[in-house]
Design a binder for these strands. Sequence first.
DNA 1: ACACAAATATAGCCATGGCTATAACTTGGT
DNA 2: ACCAAGTTATAGCCATGGCTATATTTGTGT
Lengths: 144, 144
Amino acid sequence: MPDTFLDKDQPANRFARAREAQAAAVLEDYVEMIGDLIEEFGEARVADIAARMSVSQPTATKSIARLKREGLAMSRPYRGVFLTEEGAALATRVRARHRTIVEFLVKTGVPRDIAELDAEGIEHHVSQVTLEVFERALQARGGD
Amino acid sequence: MPDTFLDKDQPANRFARAREAQAAAVLEDYVEMIGDLIEEFGEARVADIAARMSVSQPTATKSIARLKREGLAMSRPYRGVFLTEEGAALATRVRARHRTIVEFLVKTGVPRDIAELDAEGIEHHVSQVTLEVFERALQARGGD
DNA sequence: ACACAAATATAGCCATGGCTATAACTTGGT
DNA sequence: ACCAAGTTATAGCCATGGCTATATTTGTGT
Ligand SMILES: [Mn+2]
Ligand SMILES: [Mn+2]
Ligand SMILES: [Mn+2]
Ligand SMILES: [Mn+2]
């Protein structure tokens, strides 16, 4: 065996890679939205999270349990949900990526409302390299 | 109740919409690939489908069962898999969309290998409107 | 203090898409 | 004809993310 260090979690092919990206999608959307709610209301209630995600309250509760398991959020029973440092950092990154993608689509010619809809799914599959390409495209004569 | 006809299946919000797009992703990838295999080898064997998807053979068998249930494919036990008319039509559409997205990303400045990886996930979330915007961008001085 | 409404948790169901282990079938070679 | 190898099907497990129904807790108003 060679003693070089290989990148971990290298998916075998493009389908496996897309599956991995998808697995993080729910986590990403929840932390971003919990961050939004805390920003807006000072706290994130389960009922508000469920409403914004358009899922039932028990479904939101279950996903929040996964966030907690993965160290992204914290909460005590019947209290609001908070982000850990790691969760807050993820929320910030995810929010920036979301915005970049929407703005890139809009600049390319997609109506903003449609860009918002498409971006909600697309965002989870855009690699860092592609994101930087989008950012560069936006900087080039950005607000024409 | 008003007697106007409303569009069916209108998701309540962007998250529900992304969930719906995701639900079709596996179906789309399988029909496209089965079409590829039939094109290349004259038939699509379960083992080859599983290998290309990087899943186990039983996982492929199960997904093929879903394709059959949904009227996209047909097969008899221990025989190859075939596409129905509907499945073949979907494969054609999905393949064209995949290519458009890859070419658009490449033209925007994303390295081709990365564009291929990202497109495998992105493709399922690009609306018809956005796809047409991409196509127009490609036609404008396409091969510089 | 207490009752009631609202919010949250819990129980228990389902479909999907992963997996491994093993059974059953098909096929090619002797 | 038959056996071995290869291929496909089946059984049975798990995690995730949906749902409804119901229990529990919180907090507010009287
Ligand atoms: Mn999203
Ligand atoms: Mn988002
Ligand atoms: Mn795909
Ligand atoms: Mn594809």
